[in-house]
Design a protein around this nucleic acid. Structure first.
Length: 233
DNA sequence: CGGTCGATTGTCT
DNA sequence: GACAATCGACCGC
């Protein structure tokens, strides 16, 4: 049975499904602690890694100021701001220098519901509280890049507890399919980088093809591909 | 329901 | 200067 430190050494495609069912805990003295159970993730391969080319990974351009923590040691957080509005949380994986990560897309609230409601507002239904990467970050009180590059295994403010046996150890069924929210015209857009737990209402409702560029091309008559197909593994 | 669109800013060409 | 690993509001069925 692998340890958590060994699991985060795996390539993103192998590490990502093992994170399903893991519990992320945010410590907050004022609002109280919040714990979320991960229900949906996406693998992002580092530039030059063996396996399929990832045309969407932030590491594809090489190291920059933003993505530097992706190149750091695994088991640390990579936090960035997306669309100028939402923060997104990733767990860096695979050996240092390989620049891979797993985007934590969705989760279910395990404890600290009151604190999450305060952060997310009353208008959100319970399954939507940490559904989608932007909402998940908000539920955890991540509103800056403060935690970028900090340890995730035994982290002080934000920590992740992995089940060494992964979802299979609990009899959870894992589904796999293409990403959502990336440009559907991009090379390799159909490759199944995304993993989620079956029968989980908190999994992303967000549809592919939501980017401004894809909207433009769609309105000019480009064919829309179906993304509903999922493969059980 | 499902499609469509604006918000908002850091990042890279 | 373009646009992004998104979200929620709004519109028309």
């Amino acid at each position: 049975m692998p340890t958590a430190a060994e699991l985060v050494q795996l390539p993103a495609l192998d590490c990502a499904p093992q994170l399903l069912g893991a519990v992320i805990t945010r410590h907050d003295d004022r609002l109280g602690d919040v714990s979320l159970r991960v229900t949906e993730v996406e693998a992002y391969h580092g530039k030059g890694m063996p396996g399929p080319v990832d045309a969407c990974s932030h590491s594809r351009m090489g190291m920059t100021a933003r993505n530097a923590s992706m190149w750091g040691p695994p088991g640390h957080w990579y936090v960035y701001l997306n669309y100028g509005i939402h923060h997104a949380l990733n767990l860096v994986c695979s050996p240092e220098g390989s620049a891979s990560g797993v985007l934590i897309r969705s989760a279910a609230v395990v404890s600290g519901l009151e604190a999450v409601r305060l952060r997310r507002g009353d208008s959100s239904t319970e399954v939507n509280l940490a559904r989608g990467p932007g909402n998940l970050a908000q539920a955890l009180g991540i509103a800056s890049r403060e935690l970028d590059g900090t340890p995730a295994l035994g982290g002080a403010r934000l920590t992740i507890a992995l089940d060494p046996e992964g979802p299979a150890g609990r009899g959870l069924s894992v589904l796999r399919g293409p990403r959502v929210g990336v440009n559907p015209e991009a090379e390799g857009a159909d490759y199944p980088w995304r993993f989620w737990l079956a029968d989980e209402p908190s999994v992303s409702a967000y549809r592919a093809g939501g980017t401004p560029s894809s909207r433009r091309s769609r309105s000019t008559g480009a064919a829309k591909k179906s993304r509903s197909s999922a493969v059980e593994r």
